[in-house]
Design a protein around this nucleic acid. Structure first.
Lengths: 147, 147
DNA sequence: CCGAATTGGTTGCATCTGTAACGGTCGATT
DNA sequence: AATCGACCGTTACAGATGCAACCAATTCGG
């Protein structure tokens, strides 16, 4: 009974496998079109959605290691897609914002991402989509709270 | 309407974030206790469950890049946890099997993984657990078929 | 107040990773 | 049987990653 682990039911394994499989195609498109790595894309998407944020907040939101965030920030800054502004009250903090060029890139990218999303959605039935949404939401809550 | 991408609803992002968050703690335990990387752990778990397999099959099952598998195989072989046997009919193929020492390590690891699994399950309600299972299964099917 | 502990962020270093190219094997076509 | 293409697996190389150690700024505790 306790001698075999069924990977098909093991959550970390399933999530990793799905994340990998689902992301791969999509990641390739923005790497080829924009030359972005995954962390860089996530940073762009996060700032595009939320406006100004700190590096730590980006990391917390996307579960990225802080060094990943740090390097992604440096990369986008170098391209002129992102600007840093040291907080006047707490000079450790840097407020990150997309430049107009960064925002323009973001706007170009959004429809592509949405099209990708729609393609996946189309492959799931309505019931399954609802179940997935509910299950993921519950898991996100558990992970956030349990830590 | 089409100007912002809501990351909290975007599947690749959610899956990556969850996979990362869920795996991190667990990965640390087997890295510290056994000195295994993630690909190595997955290889061990896959062979432990299925017995003999080829490297390609392992990669397909776990969505790992073939070079990852190749390196994990080399690492486990070096530890004496895994043995290769070239197929006599098709000499391109290598049948991978855990050695008795590898199998012993696997057996030690299974209860740890199951305990981890149980801890996550305990954080989800029964309904949510069912929804998650259903949603993930549907997505797995879609991903496998769509490709 | 002052030193200790904490926090935001960066960097050195070793390791891990993907891409592309490769060597070796097999099957099909001719 | 020679050739072409497909397939299994490895490796060189450049780039990405995580850990630990670090700097600087802030907050906490006495």
């Amino acid at each position: 009974m306790d001698d075999v682990l069924e990977l098909e039911r093991f959550l970390p394994y399933r999530l990793n496998r799905l994340a990998e499989a689902v992301s791969r195609d999509f990641a390739r498109t923005y790497r080829e079109r924009l030359g972005l790595t995954r962390p860089e894309w996530r940073l762009l998407a996060t700032l595009g959605q939320f406006g100004t944020m700190t590096a730590t907040a980006v990391g917390a939101h996307s579960a990225m290691h802080k060094t990943k965030v740090s390097r992604a920030v440096a990369a986008l800054e170098k391209r002129g897609w992102l600007a840093r502004a040291t907080d006047t009250d707490d000079r450790r903090i840097e407020r990150l914002t997309l430049t107009s060029r960064g925002a323009a890139t973001y706007r170009d990218m959004v429809p592509v991402a949405k099209a990708f999303e729609a393609r996946i959605d189309a492959m799931l039935g309505k019931q399954e989509r609802a179940a997935l949404a509910r299950g993921l939401a519950a898991l996100e809550k558990a992970v956030a709270g349990g830590s």
